[in-house]
C-alpha cells in the first residue's frame, strides 16, 4: 500500500452551483450536508431516489414546490430537468427567503379558478 494515497475521506468543503455558479460550503449552518444551492435553490441529480444509490443522470434539478409535512417545517420538492425525477430536500437556515417565498405563493398567485368565490362558501 503506497503512502501517497489520499486520506479515505477527502471531502470537498465547497461546491459550485450548476445554475448560478455560486461557490457554497458543503455543510449548512446546522452542520448537515447541503444538497441544494442556498442562492437559487437548484440541485443536481446525483442520487437515484427511485431505485436507490447513485444516479447516472447528473442533470440539474429545479425547485418545484414547497411541501409542509407534519411539524410545520418547509421541505423543497425538486424536479430533474433531464429525467423528470422528483426529490425532497429540507430547507436550510440560509436558503434565500425571497426565492422560497416566491415558490410558496406561486400556486396562489395564478389559480386555475377564481379564489374570491371562497369568501362566500
Amino acid at each position: 500500500m503506497s503512502t501517497t494515497e489520499p486520506s479515505p475521506t477527502p471531502r470537498a468543503l465547497t461546491f459550485d452551483c450548476v445554475r448560478c455558479g455560486l461557490t457554497v460550503s458543503a455543510l449548512d449552518p446546522d452542520g448537515r450536508e447541503r444538497d441544494h444551492c442556498p442562492g437559487c435553490l437548484s440541485s443536481r441529480h446525483v442520487v437515484d431516489h427511485d431505485g436507490g444509490g447513485a444516479s447516472a443522470c447528473d442533470g440539474r434539478m429545479v425547485p418545484l414546490s414547497i411541501a409542509v409535512p407534519r411539524g410545520g417545517v418547509w421541505v423543497l420538492v425538486h424536479r430533474c430537468v433531464r429525467c423528470d425525477e422528483l426529490a425532497e430536500s429540507a430547507v436550510t437556515a440560509d436558503d434565500n427567503p425571497l426565492v422560497l417565498m416566491r415558490i410558496a405563493v406561486r400556486p396562489l398567485a395564478d389559480p386555475p379558478f377564481p379564489l374570491d368565490l371562497f369568501g362566500e362558501v
Binding site: 425571497l98 422560497l100 400556486p107 371562497f118
Partner: peptide, 27 residues
C-alpha cells in the same frame, strides 16, 4: 375538490412555527 386544493395551496403560508414565520424573519 377546490376546497381541498386551496387548503393544500395555503399550507406553506399558514402559521407554521418554523415554516413561514422563520422564512419571513430571514427575509
Amino acid at each position: 375538490n377546490a376546497r381541498a386544493l386551496v387548503r393544500l395551496a395555503v399550507r406553506p403560508l399558514a402559521g407554521a412555527p418554523s415554516g413561514f414565520a422563520a422564512v419571513a424573519r430571514g427575509a
